[in-house]
Amino acid sequence: MAPDASVKTASAAAPVTATPRVGRLVRWDVIVTALLIVVFIGGALGTPDFATGDNLSFALDDLCEIALIALPMTLLVVVGEVDLSVASALGMSSALLGALWDAGWAIETIVPLLIVVGAVTGLVNGLLVTRLGLPSLAVTIGTLTLYRGLAYVVLGTKAVAEFPQNYADLATGTVPGTPIPYPFALFIVLAIITAVVLHATGAGRAMFAIGAQEEAAFFAGIRVKRIKLLLFVVSGVVSAFAGVIYTLRYGSARADNGLGLELAVIAAVLLGGVDFDGGRGTLGGVVAGVLLIGLLRNLLMLRDVATEIQSIVTGLLLIVSVLTPRIVAGVREARRHPRGSMSASSQ
């Protein structure tokens, strides 16, 4: 099957059209990164307490569960799925940690167990989605309720505290010589790994293909179900581990830990420019989105702006982040096609 010599003469690479590439410059993840820098500089200039090491490490520490869970969530959204049960898995892990610690287990035994439990929570989601072909939105709304319920079953409304100091230190301490808390350092490492997987490996290529056109990916021999299943499991594991960090950071295991966190995670991922319909997005964008939400919240807090306003800002950012690309695309389309065709309005 060597290329046929007779056709090589064709000048295949001759440019047919020269479409201007301005589109590339206004990618959403670039805008978010720019926004992040603006917010940071603005904050540093306008708010004295902002750019201090203490404050930054506090802000990062406060953000780490959202940041960690955002990594597998990004992959899931890229393949066109979503996991709403992450915060409940976090809460369940926290409740289990409390209950087992209360029962005299050692942290060293509990944590591996929690990881396994996390994997099982993800496996349940993944099997329901891939084996039964159910929409992940419906499935994970169900397991969101289920896992949170189980958290209450395990711990009730009790709060378990007084975890060993050395572990609490791990959750709140910073890497020596930097303002970076240990959990956030873990995030950095995992973010790099995720970025490589998503953007440089065959698995990442496959994920984008699945999200953009699942049927075509399946026809190309990609094991769509297996990849999705794996991603749900990873999501469960990371959520469970985030539950451990959350518990140690606040020094309190409760069944309602992390309530509502799933929405913050999704907000961060979408703000980072990942297309909710799948197939498009960058991990860099997500990291910028996570940081932007974190810094913005921190800034507003430092400036004594009510926490409620922070929620409004998050909501507006979320809407703007999905609205802007559509409007830009619409305007571009209208300019290219003055009497634009209706066919562009596919659902």
Binding site: A267, E308, Q310, S311, I312, G315, L316, L318, V322, I327
Partner: peptide
């Protein structure tokens, strides 16, 4: 604007609640 419903209503959830 044909923005995904889940995202939009999640956003308005935050805004209204805030």
């Amino acid at each position: 604007f044909r923005v995904p419903a889940l995202v939009v209503t999640l956003g308005t959830l935050y805004v209204i609640q805030g």
